[in-house]
Amino acid sequence: MRWILVLALICCSLAARADFDYRLEPRQIAESVWLLEGSTDNFAAANGGNIVNTGFIVSDQGVLVIDSGPSRRYGEALRQAIARVTDKPVLKLLLTHHHPDHALGNQAFADVPIAALAGTTQLLAEQGEAMAENMYRLVGDWMRGTEVRLPTETLTPGPLQVGNRRLQLIGLRGHSGADLAILDETSGVLFAGDLLFYQRALTTPGTPGLDLWLADLERLQALPWKQIVPGHGPLASSAAPFKQMRDYLGWLDGVMRDGAEQGAEMNELIRTPIPERFAGISLSRYELIRSVSHLYPRYERARLRRVDR
């Protein structure tokens, strides 16, 4: 009898998953700094697209939010989660970049300025519809009511004062073409956006080049950070995410550079063994297949020359 009750409870809790509640639980990681950590899985109906890290900083004047998540529902859940932590008003939403998991919750912030780099706004305008469509395909009903909403304010890199908090905005481009990193000077928390993936294979659909990405990492690592919030993966207080990223990017770059030099075909490259040291990084095979598709054409063209007569 008791077992039936337990089973019934399990069933209920499973059924509750279908109510499209992200169950966001903000975690305080520094004084007035909060993190909402997503999973390191891929987009799936089981996670509603919550594979991303978002966060917020509570100043004496109000709240600064960093990224809006993958859907309207997520954005709304984020607003509610913030309201559970503070009664201060939301002042502004900052977007780290235009990718769907970071910027499709914007509708829930229609009442405040949505600020991003000019490049981010342009990329979201160009690619937002297609990305949203793909998200509907991948996570289904979680996306209901989600529409692309473009930023209303253009950010320039440099200092940003929000109430009593001073932030540094760093403009980069290695991951998506327009990437914003945010350093909260008071706490030393660095929101690195997708320039940093940790324990999760990085994604390359919009990168202008792995060399530029590596240069961006150098700039970020040199900042006076105390904790790092990667775009995907766990919070860190050491340079481990930088080390892993550099190692992984270098490996990926080497696989394609050597491949192009040796005349490898894409189907040969995507079967490259994944080094043992990356065994703990989720989705590495899957992302290798994607990265070869995105980037290998550039590497191979660089090795070819005109041969027509």
Binding site: G263, E300, R301, R306, D308
Partner: peptide, 20 residues
């Protein structure tokens, strides 16, 4: 139109022509 990029590569067991 009709421009060809290419190169020959030495494989372990063959000479590979790659063309675009």
């Amino acid at each position: 139109l009709g421009e060809v990029l290419g190169r020959r590569f030495v494989l372990a067991d063959a000479s590979r022509l790659r063309l675009q």
